[in-house]
C-alpha cells in the first residue's frame, strides 16, 4: 500500500549510488531483494517505480525483484527451515521460540549503469 513511497526511496538511493565519474549515466536495471514477509506487492512497486523514475537517470530502468523466502530457526533445537505458511512453531521440538533469518528484506543490492 505504501509502494509509492518505497519507489521514491529506491529512485533516491539509486541516483545517489551512481559514481560521480560517470557522465550522463543511465540506469538500466535496479536489482532488489524483497522478502516474502515484507508488505510489498511487486506489480504495484513496478507501476509506481515507472512513474517516479520519469525524467531521472532511471527512466525506463527495469526493476529486477528477487523474492526471498521466509527462513526461520528454532532457538531451542537449532533447526532451520523455510516456511510457506505463517506457522511460527518448530516442526521438530514444537518450541515457539523462533527467529526469522530471512524474509523481511527490502534491499537494493545493485544498479546496472550504462554511460551514454
Amino acid at each position: 500500500m505504501h509502494e509509492m513511497g518505497i519507489a521514491m526511496e529506491i529512485v533516491e538511493i539509486a541516483i545517489s549510488s551512481i559514481p560521480d565519474n560517470i557522465k550522463n549515466a543511465c540506469v538500466e536495471r535496479v536489482n532488489l531483494k524483497v522478502g516474502k514477509l515484507s508488505a510489498i506487492v511487486p506489480e504495484s512497486l513496478r507501476f509506481c517505480f515507472d512513474i517516479v523514475s520519469k525524467d531521472t537517470p532511471l527512466a525506463g530502468a527495469k526493476l529486477n525483484i528477487e523474492n526471498i523466502p521466509v527462513v526461520v530457526r528454532c532457538r531451542e533445537c537449532d533447526l532451520k527451515w523455510t516456511i510457506d505458511s505463517p506457522v511460527f512453531k518448530c516442526k521438530k521440538c514444537k518450541s515457539g521460540l523462533i527467529d526469522i533469518i530471512s524474509g523481511r528484506e527490502l534491499d537494493i543490492t545493485s544498479i546496472e549503469v550504462v554511460e551514454e
Partner: peptide, 13 residues
Amino acid sequence: MEIKVVRRVLDVN
C-alpha cells in the same frame, strides 16, 4: 556496468 549498492530501502526510516 554493475554497481554494488547493498542498502536497505527503509534505511532512512
